[in-house]
Design a protein around this nucleic acid. Structure first.
Lengths: 188, 188
DNA sequence: ATTATCTATAGATCTATAGATAATGC
DNA sequence: ATTATCTATAGATCTATAGATAATGC
């Protein structure tokens, strides 16, 4: 039973870390503020994650689960209509989107501990998207683009819309805009 | 002459601040590290900008100048070929792009001092882009999109590509990908 | 007088280590 | 024994204020 308790505690801590990172970013998040949310002291938290960076790594690992719907990144399991649903779902959980967007933004700074993670992740995602586009629309997309050319644009639209939407949810219809983009990509 | 000296000093400090923000983000940037770069103590720097936030505001104000090529954000002065050139130019100054991207990423976190700035800026930019798209391509774009529908996508692609490019410049051809996107937008 | 800088310092934080104490599991 | 937490604390930082000192501009 102890094992289970411990796992629960870890999960609680990760959830709290997600929140605090959404609010302040990774660099701005203090272990003490995460600890406080789960009723621990900062030192108590370090019993579960020995360093701040270890906590971040755990957050990123976990995040990869939900985000892909468990499907995994590299598989060509993306389908455009499912992607649109994912965006719609994301529009209902601004907290998660905010955590992710804050981390991506920070990750481009020097020596950021999430840099490697995002670099590899994006390479995989572009690959997966290209495969999915090929499967769905074939070898040529509008404008004569190849799936490999369209994939980074698809990813860019997903990320870029998140920033605009987080800054001004009332002015930006994220799911609608994404569907608009898919319209552009669909061969007539 | 004293005035001129002072202005120079300010400009030096702003340049240093840009660099440090690129490296560590705003929250991670310390006044002391900015001061050190211009050969001042942290307290000496506070003579020119009374608070850290005042320094950030000055950085953001200045940045708006170059970024628009001085043209201003709200004008419909954007032309798609000029935008493509701007992206090409940006690809030659990763430091600036990194400053901007780090700040945008951070700005979605709670109570970030640049949040208001980016929110208003993006509203203006979307407006300007829509006007530019209308002027250039008319009322209907591929897929039947209106200029107002395409504008947020255009902005999203610009931002999103910057993140992918900063993380992995060797794998992402930012200017090329942007031109690909323009191909999608151009009515046949 | 004003401007440019500096030293000193207050008052908060922050991460991480050391080591104690209590509870749980064999 | 191991696990979960705590107190104490070291050692860095960080921003900002106070007040001194030197140089510059009238």
């Amino acid at each position: 039973m102890a094992r289970a308790r411990s796992e629960e505690r870890r999960a609680e801590i990760l959830r709290a870390a997600l929140e605090v990172i959404a609010e302040r970013g990774y660099r701005g998040a203090s272990l003490a503020s995460v600890a406080e949310r789960v009723g621990l002291t900062q030192q108590g938290l370090l019993h579960y994650f020995p360093t701040k960076e270890a906590l971040l790594v755990a957050v990123l690992d976990e995040r990869d689960q939900w985000d892909t719907g468990g499907a995994g990144l590299s598989t060509a399991a993306w389908r455009m209509d499912l992607l649109a649903s994912l965006v719609e779902y994301n529009a209902m959980r601004p907290g998660i989107v905010q955590t992710f967007s804050a981390l991506l933004g920070e990750s481009v700074t020097d020596e950021h501990p999430a840099k490697e993670f995002f670099t590899q992740r994006y390479a995989l995602v572009r690959e997966g998207m290209a495969a999915a586009l090929r499967m769905e629309y074939g070898e040529r997309l509008p404008g004569g683009l190849t799936p490999e050319q369209a994939a980074p644009l698809l990813v860019a639209v997903l990320d870029g819309l998140q920033y605009q939407w987080l800054l001004d949810p009332g002015s930006v219809d994220m799911p609608g805009a994404f569907r608009d983009f898919l319209t552009l990509l669909r061969p007539e």
